[in-house]
């Protein structure tokens, strides 16, 4: 059970599903982690359900996205609710809570871009009775660290796959051009310009990779939706959908990359096809 200041919180907010108004969290409401219901002995938790903690009733305001980290097992309420619970615990709970109004255990500091965490920590440590730790020391296996270590490798693998894809498209279209030499020669004999032949091959390639891109998006989306829980658990990292505009940007960038892949892969075969001499193409394609 964690008490937060809904107005300034930035640690829980990233995991909040759309539709949950964390800023408007009331003192009798609770936001549960993705697996918080297990600790309450419930099969599932739905917004609007009532749960009781230390004799105090809360209404579930929402459930967070799975993160794969401790957030999943927690419940978040306002600071006022925590203080109220502590007071009621004296009378209602077997286990007492030693929290007085005004007590806080942690102040999370979001360091502004351009400032060093270590410098901010040093400045905070000058305040008597306060000890600052930076996030790296606090969360040695944090999501950020895991992603930081995974990202370059994944980018490298992705780049490798992309290069192989471009080469494979080039090889595929070289074979296609060879198979269709006669057709290309005939088109030129009927009046097709070199530019037309070049454009035709390029368009076929770009159409193919675009369709492949759309198919990849659909299949990838289904796989991610199906396996997101397993991914979070097995990798121990959080899984969270980015904002809709960011997803749209990624989709657009991905499709542009698919188009570029088709264009780059077919560039050499298309050039070769456009330079075929009609008579040779027809004769050798028979």
């Amino acid at each position: 059970m964690v008490g937060i200041d809904p107005d300034t919180d930035f640690t829980v907010r990233p995991w909040v599903k759309e539709g949950i108004d964390i800023g408007g969290l009331k003192d009798d409401e609770i936001i549960l982690g993705a697996e918080g219901h297990i600790f309450l002995g419930l099969e599932e938790a739905r917004p609007g359900d009532k749960v009781v903690f230390y004799g105090q009733e809360f209404t579930i305001a929402g459930v967070l996205e799975p993160t794969g980290i401790g957030i999943d097992d927690s419940g978040y309420v306002t600071m006022e609710a925590i203080y109220g619970m502590a007071q009621l615990a004296d009378a209602n709970a077997m286990l007492q809570i030693d929290v007085e109004p005004g007590d806080i255990s942690v102040v999370m500091v979001d360091v502004k871009e351009g400032y060093e965490r270590a410098e901010v920590a040093t400045a905070i440590n000058r305040i008597s009775g306060v000890a600052a730790v930076t996030s790296r020391e606090l969360m040695s296996t944090s999501v950020a660290q895991k992603l930081e270590s995974l990202t370059p490798g994944m980018l490298l693998i992705g780049a490798g796959f992309w290069v192989v894809t471009v080469l494979m498209i080039g090889a595929l279209f070289s074979m296609v051009i060879n198979e269709r030499r006669r057709e290309l020669g005939l088109l030129q004999a009927m009046g097709a310009t070199r530019r037309y032949v070049f454009r035709m091959v390029m368009l076929e390639s770009v159409e193919l990779t675009f369709l492949g891109g759309v198919l990849g998006l659909v299949v990838g989306g289904i796989v991610m939706l199906t396996l997101k829980g397993s991914l979070s658990t097995s990798l121990g990292i959080a899984f969270l959908w980015p904002a809709a505009w960011y997803v749209a940007l990624l989709v657009a960038a991905y499709l542009v990359l698919a188009l570029a892949t088709g264009a780059m892969g077919a560039l050499y075969p298309a050039t070769r096809a456009s330079r075929l001499e009609p008579y040779q193409a027809i004769r050798t394609g028979e």
Binding site: Q188, M190, G191, R194, R195, Y196
Partner: peptide, 14 residues
């Protein structure tokens, strides 16, 4: 190339 393509399509049938 454009003129030759035009000739093949406009003046000649194969």
């Amino acid at each position: 190339n454009r003129e030759l393509s035009r000739l093949r399509s406009d003046r000649i049938g194969f």
